[in-house]
């Protein structure tokens, strides 16, 4: 995949219902993405094969399977091992961000995020990721 491919599909996994709602408006209505929202890691794992996202956006702390566990499972799937995974976290400390990047996250967006610019932020991450691969 390269940057000439249109970037449209994001899967977002988040357990906080209110954050899911505002992020859905931000990514669908404001940024125009084709968005699949899942409320926990297990649902994300079930849906990824059907939805085939180009980028996965993950909350870190979730009951059951958390974000880092889901990242690991996705990276083990040959079909999705190469798609960028971005964390959205309220744990904004630099060491936490570094830890998530070491796990294989492409980038980390800290909460609170700006819903008006979230889409563009994610597009830039996606573009940088593919440019770095070329």
């Amino acid at each position: 995949m390269n940057t000439s491919v249109e970037f449209t599909k994001i899967m977002y996994v988040e357990d906080e219902p209110d954050i899911r709602l505002v992020a859905e408006i931000a990514l669908k209505q404001v940024a125009g993405f084709d968005l699949k929202i899942c409320s926990d890691g297990y649902e994300g794992l079930d849906e990824i094969g059907n939805f085939k996202p180009q980028l996965v956006l993950l909350d870190v702390m979730m009951p059951g399977m958390d974000g880092p566990q889901l990242l690991k499972r996705i990276k083990e799937m040959p079909e999705f091992a190469d798609i960028p995974i971005v964390f959205m976290t309220a744990k904004a400390q630099a060491d936490e961000v570094e830890k998530l990047k070491k796990m294989g996250a492409e980038n980390v967006i800290t909460k609170p995020f700006n819903p008006m610019t979230l889409g563009n932020e994610i597009r830039t991450i996606w573009q940088n990721y593919h440019e770095s691969k070329q």
Binding site: E16, D18, I19, V22, A23, I25, A26, V30, A90, A92, T110, K111, P112, F113, N114, P115, M116
Partner: peptide, 15 residues
């Protein structure tokens, strides 16, 4: 814990 509700408040109002 503070940032979690703040994310919902801030994002709702910014929209």
């Amino acid at each position: 814990e503070l940032r979690t509700p703040l994310t919902s408040i801030k994002a709702s109002l910014e929209l």
